[in-house]
């Protein structure tokens, strides 16, 4: 059987996609770079106002082995963001947070500095202002928060937190 050129090239495309695939985070890396392009200077730097180590679950006598958490509160001129890092055990962590007052945001998590911008993870804060990174990277990180506004509308400025540790 002779395949058409198109069918053969389609198979070639598939085989390259399998054997030398684009990195899984290629698209996220591009979006992160685009999101913060030329904005670094405009980012408002949050300040850390509170850092609380807490145990969750122990209050009700539940098993405490997977429940240590850290809460951070950052404040800017118009918004606050509350960040909770929960230790799920075995090295796994979860990061979730709230933007107050609630606003739809694009949220990036990554190491400080532009050089590693392509490694940033991204999430969205929903209309209630909640966002979550179920498997955040470890180490020193910052959060970048980009308000999602319809084009033409004025929104609050983008924010960046100081570096903190996960």
């Amino acid at each position: 059987m002779t395949r058409s050129d198109d069918a053969l090239l389609h198979a070639v495309a598939d085989v390259y996609a399998e054997w030398d695939p684009a990195p899984a985070d290629l698209v996220d890396g591009v979006l992160a770079r685009l999101a913060v392009r030329d904005l670094e200077a405009e980012f408002e730097l949050f300040t850390l106002v509170q850092n609380v180590d807490t145990g969750i679950g122990t209050r009700h006598g539940e098993a405490a082995e997977t429940s240590a958490s850290v809460a951070l509160e950052f404040a800017g001129s118009t918004y606050r963001v509350l960040v909770r890092i929960t230790d799920l055990g075995e090295g796994d962590r979860r990061l979730d947070g709230w933007v107050v007052p609630a606003f739809s945001m694009r949220v990036f998590l990554g190491p400080p500095g532009d050089a590693l911008a392509h490694t940033r993870q991204s999430a969205y804060a929903d209309r209630e202002g909640r966002f979550e990174f179920p498997a955040p990277m470890h180490g020193e990180v910052r959060l970048w928060l980009l308000p999602q506004v319809a084009s033409g509308d004025d929104g609050p400025p983008p924010f960046v937190t100081p570096p903190f540790l996960i």
């Binding site: 495309a13 390259y16 996609a17 030398d20 684009a22 990195p23 290629l26 698209v27 890396g29 591009v30 770079r33 685009l34 911008a117 392509h118």
Partner: peptide, 26 residues
Amino acid sequence: SPVLWHVVRATGLDREATEDVVQNTW
């Protein structure tokens, strides 16, 4: 982006450099 990945890889650049090129293209 996946299309650009394969287009750039076909030029012979390594994976790391290809990722940079794709980002810079955007």
